[in-house]
Design a protein around this nucleic acid. Structure first.
Length: 527
RNA sequence: GGGCGGAUGGCGAAGUGGAAACGCUGCGGUCUGCAAAACCGCCAUUCACCGGUUCGAAUCCGGUUCCGCCCUCCA
């Protein structure tokens, strides 16, 4: 049984969809006038993980995420850059997808845009006016909050509370101060659409009501977003949608907590935000995901560089175990079961059950991840201690391991595939070169190779069977070669010509020709 | 002012009535030419503070202090 914390009821409730096994899920997407920052990335990753988990548990999820591509900020940006508003929106939507992909966020089933739903929005506004929930004031249309009795139920405040705390100047034309715009008339130079009330564009809140109900029906199972959307955005969505359809709008409201910097909310207005694109320069999507999911989604999450460093080391532990396991699967393995095999198998089943229990409890990814480390420990211990290795048990381990990291969205196979073959081959040949040096007890050279590789982001580990390599980062061919050339220079300086020549031959076998002359050495590729 | 949430080891973070998970860091050991990885072991008698309920409280109740968020565009 999956339990979710519902902002509306302020408690955990059993998740029951309207039409099992279907689940309709709508998540508020970004306003596309800039690259997304880490604060924007949290709901992306959180709700992507929730979606993955619901699918894992057998639900047929329809996942909808909108783009707000009509908005004041986009218009302003367009003015600044002397472009059309839709050009700005299109550009950043495209950039959004690049970041999302890098974070292993799966594309939604539908990505509706406001600009493509203007007729439906106008129809909805008309209906609200007809039903007496909205009124027109010189080209603008406002929603009459007093016409909707349940207003304030999501954010837990009464209309009086809202008035008491009003900090903003009220538009004189509104009947009540907390009424909000459904349609805004266009000022000169602004993009507009024709409507019964004149040229203008939709207000912010109406888009989500119209688009979510269009694709998911008048009652959504899950509506998600950041906690800052609770009021007024989601409160207004409820008012509009329920006034329009007469049906409950959403069964479960899910809200993620903020990312903070020095305990302060990361936001564009405070200027303390970090662009996802920049972070991904230094850390992989796997690292960012592990960081974002290592705290429960409703809790605040403080950011600084050391947090990503820590996540990176934690990910290393997972990756090491994964590679160890893959390596073991590459060997023959036995088929009969020893007590150690049975113990591991039992442990794996327990860990999987615990992982599911954690996720069932309002998507407790922090606890769930601890069970991934449980698998890591169990597998590592088995590999270190078992005299024989049972193939079916290793496969079982791989299966459980994969299920778990897939839900969290850590993609280990993809990371492997990124490595280009040329550099890979070059690294392997250096490892072979070092093996020979070690065999001949030429440890200074062997260590020199290891240091070189280490500088290039390649970690070498020696074992009885041979050397294992781990790529921390993908070395650049140019940088790697420069380092190799330098190492060879120092071999020659030490008059270790045999080794230097051997290195030259090794590289030649890789299609890399080294030429020595009076000025120094250079290298080139042959095909 | 109104509404909501939080305070757990050196750091991060689970845990909501009965052995204080997990990760990072640090320390000791095994393995190793050395290193790394891995394995084994150690590191909170204590969960902001005070009082109460209970056989039993980090967990429930009351109070205090501190912190964050929302009430304005925001994920």
């Amino acid at each position: 049984m999956i339990k979710v914390y519902n902002t509306l009821s302020r408690k955990k409730e059993e998740l029951r969809s309207i039409n099992p096994p279907k689940i309709g899920m709508y998540v508020c997407g970004p306003t596309t006038y800039n690259y997304i920052h880490l604060g924007n990335a949290r709901p992306l990753v959180v709700f992507d993980t929730i979606r993955r988990y619901l699918i894992y548990r057998g639900f047929e999820v329809t996942y909808v995420q909108n783009f707000t591509d009509v908005d004041d900020k986009i218009i302003n940006r367009a003015h600044e850059e002397n472009k059309e508003a839709h050009e700005i929106a299109d550009f950043y939507i495209n950039e959004y997808f690049k970041d999302a992909r890098a974070l292993h966020v799966r594309e939604a089933d539908l990505h509706p845009r406001v600009s493509e739903h203007i007729p439906e929005i106008i129809e909805a506004i008309k209906a609200l006016i007809d039903k007496g929930h909205a009124y027109v004031r010189d080209g603008d249309v406002f929603f009459a909050v007093s016409s909707f009795p349940g207003y304030g139920k999501l954010s837990g405040r009464s209309p009086e509370d809202i008035l008491a705390g009003a900090r903003v100047e009220v538009d004189e034309r509104k009947e009540e101060p907390h009424d909000f715009a459904l349609w805004k008339s266009a000022k000169p130079g602004e993009p507009y659409w024709e409507s019964p009330w004149g040229k203008g564009r939709p207000g912010w809140h109406i888009e989500c009501s119209v688009m979510s109900m269009k694709y998911l029906g008048s009652t959504l199972d899950i509506h998600g977003g950041g906690a800052d959307l609770v009021f007024p955005h989601h409160e207004n969505e409820i008012a509009q949608s329920e006034a329009y359809s007469g049906q409950p709008f959403v069964r479960y409201w899910l809200h993620n907590g903020f990312i903070t910097v020095n305990k302060e909310k990361m936001s564009k207005s405070l200027g303390n935000f970090f662009i996802v694109r920049d972070i991904l320069q230094k850390y992989s999507g796997n690292v960012v995901r592990l960081y974002l999911l290592s705290t429960h989604y409703r809790s605040p999450l403080d950011f600084d560089d050391s947090k990503l460093e820590e996540a990176e080391r934690a990910l290393e532990r997972i990756k090491n175990s994964w590679h160890l396991l893959q390596e073991a699967l590459g060997e023959p393995g036995s088929t009969d079961l020893t007590p150690k095999d049975e113990e591991l198998s039992r442990e794996l089943d327990t860990l999987r059950a615990e992982f599911i229990m954690a996720m069932d409890d309002d998507f407790n990814t922090a606890l769930a991840i601890s069970h991934i480390f449980g698998v890591v420990r169990a597998v590592n211990r088995y590999l270190a201690e078992a005299k024989t290795r049972s193939r079916p048990v290793l496969e079982h381990a791989m299966q459980v391991f994969r299920e778990m990291i897939d839900i969290i969205g850590i993609a280990l196979d993809a990371e492997e595939a990124q490595s280009s073959s040329k550099v890979r081959d070059l690294v392997s040949s250096l490892v072979e070169f070092r093996r020979q040096a070690r065999q001949e007890k030429d440890y200074p050279t062997a260590d020199m190779v290891r240091d070189l590789l280490h500088r290039q982001g390649v970690i070498l580990e020696d074992s009885k069977e041979g050397s294992r390599i781990r790529l921390e980062t993908e070395p650049e061919l140019e940088g790697l070669m420069a380092d190799i050339m330098q190492m060879r220079q120092s071999l020659r300086k030490d008059k270790n010509f045999a080794r230097a020549d051997q290195l030259r031959e090794t590289l030649a076998a890789q299609g890399i020709i080294i030429e020595d002359n009076r000025e120094g050495s250079r290298w080139r590729l042959v095909d």
